[in-house]
Design a protein around this nucleic acid. Sequence first.
DNA 1: GGTTGATGGTTGGAAAATCCAACTCACCAC
DNA 2: GTGGTGAGTTGGATTTTCCAACCATCAACC
Lengths: 168, 168
Amino acid sequence: MDSFASAAPRLPHPQTPGRPCSIAAALALVGEKWALLAVREVALGNRRFDAIARNTGAPRDILTTRLRSLEAVGVLERRRYQDRPPRFEYHLTVPGTDLLPVLQMLAAWGDRWVSDEPPVAYTHQDHEFAAALMCGTCGEEAVAGTVHAHVRAEGWDRRGPVAAAEGN
Amino acid sequence: MDSFASAAPRLPHPQTPGRPCSIAAALALVGEKWALLAVREVALGNRRFDAIARNTGAPRDILTTRLRSLEAVGVLERRRYQDRPPRFEYHLTVPGTDLLPVLQMLAAWGDRWVSDEPPVAYTHQDHEFAAALMCGTCGEEAVAGTVHAHVRAEGWDRRGPVAAAEGN
DNA sequence: GGTTGATGGTTGGAAAATCCAACTCACCAC
DNA sequence: GTGGTGAGTTGGATTTTCCAACCATCAACC
């Protein structure tokens, strides 16, 4: 896992208000509708600007800024596939590919709670795929209520900022 | 699973541009930074407006509109815990609780790629929790590249809208 | 009786981001 | 020379966000 994590460089750490939290950090980098939908399209194999714009419905100018930002952050890579005129394709980096489980979970939630019938079905190897959360340590499914948070960040606990009873 | 899904009512189906997709639908309902961070805080047990505002860093007026929207959508429930003056607490509904795997995946991604060291650690039962995507059908971990999409939505395929070669 | 603090918000106004339609520029095929 | 593809830009109107300050209700303190 250490060797895997070092296989690609770390992404820039954004400034987030509130509690120090990897969820907030992740959202600051990729947590925007059009950004995630662009990643979805690239994952589906649609690597070109026009296809991404059409299939997501994103305004073209917004999409431009999102693609630039995803590239700057290291989630997408922009590759020139021809010169004269210059044309580009977007590809997932390693961190970008690692976002797909997040999208799978979102799709599963949407399928369960909002879509009448799944607009997209997923298969795992040869059978129907049903997304679930797994604990990689024990190999079992992590059922609701069995995962607990332990706040490590200095000056914070579960309730919020610690009163910091120093000298005051 | 069928009986589980019917245990709570379905959420409103939002209008989304682009490809019909449960990811887009989910993002339309809950895919906004402050909304997801509010859900995070409620999941941590911080159910009151002031605590959520402080711990997320969200502007209070924005937080008000997000909480109202999450309530309207059916992700949160707003409970009065005293009258005179009226005071409220926010609780996760069943669909809201079902969002936690999404947050776990986001946290895992942030831990892996952006946070220097995890600001929050998670345990599963008594051991360290390592989030992974599982295929509920076969019980195995869904490794990158083993899950494939099949577009079912009428008029669309993986590449985009179908040319609709009728009579043309 | 006045002040402070907690709680759960509103309000006003400035700043920023979004959305939309139209436009560009370079090339290719017909 | 007309139309199409591809990858964006541009201008301008509309929305949304952000921020700080404010408000109301009650309890406790002094």
